[in-house]
Simulated scan of single mutants.
Amino acid sequence: MHQIKKITSRETFPVRHPVLRPGLPEDSCIFTGDDLETTVHFGLFDNKAIAGVISVFRASNPAFEAPLQFQVRGMAVLPQHQKKGFGEQLVQHAEEYVKQAGGNFIWFNAREAATGFYKKTGYHITGNPFDIPGVGIHYIMYKHL
């Protein structure tokens, strides 16, 4: 039995750190804007243990003209919980949140290895790949809801 519920930014770290920032200090899991009132974090719990996380920021990217934009950050599922559909559930939950907040546009910086996953959920790549030092090659991806 699993459920998705709102959590604090700090509660994302047990997933963000090992999946997105392995080998880096835990404070590398702190993202600018994590604790703004316009930012929300969700955790997916499997048998009451956190298995995956996603964060949604109200943030604009100048590459897009949508008036109200939301950025997904820190989407991660612990390795032992991957390939169970949890990532798709977290993305769908974030999309529903954005719709309820009056938005219809999501963008994010996707790791090169994750672009196939996001394409399957309807996201598109724009622009050229870029490197985030210490993290790797990324692509800007987006979706109109």
Rank of each mutant, 00 (worst) to 15 (best):
E37Y: 06
P133A: 14
L145I: 12
Q89K: 15
H17R: 04
S60R: 12
G103F: 12
Q69V: 07
F86Q: 02
V53M: 08
T32F: 11
M75Q: 06
P62F: 10
Q80N: 14
R16T: 09
I132G: 07
N109R: 03
P62Y: 07
Y118M: 02
A63G: 01
I7H: 12
N104P: 00
P18H: 08
Q92H: 06
T12G: 08
R111P: 01
L24A: 04
E95Y: 02
K120R: 14
G43R: 12
I106K: 02
K83R: 14
P62Q: 12
I132D: 06
C29T: 13
T121M: 14
D35V: 01
M75D: 00
K48Q: 14
E96R: 14
R73I: 03
V91P: 04
E65D: 14
F86G: 01
I137W: 02
V77F: 08
L24E: 09
P129L: 03
Y142V: 05
P62I: 12
R21C: 13
V72E: 02
Y139S: 00
T121R: 12
P67L: 05
P18G: 04
E26H: 05
W107H: 13
P62D: 13
T115R: 08
Y97V: 04
M1E: 06
I106M: 08
V91N: 08
N109W: 01
I54R: 02
F31C: 03
G102T: 08
T38L: 04
F130R: 11
R21D: 00
P25Q: 09
K143D: 05
T32Y: 10
I140R: 06
I140K: 07
A114H: 08
L20P: 09
N128S: 12
S28C: 03
V77N: 09
A94G: 07
G136P: 10
L36N: 13
I106L: 14
T126A: 07
F130W: 10
V98Y: 06
P133Y: 06
F130Y: 15
R58C: 13
E65V: 06
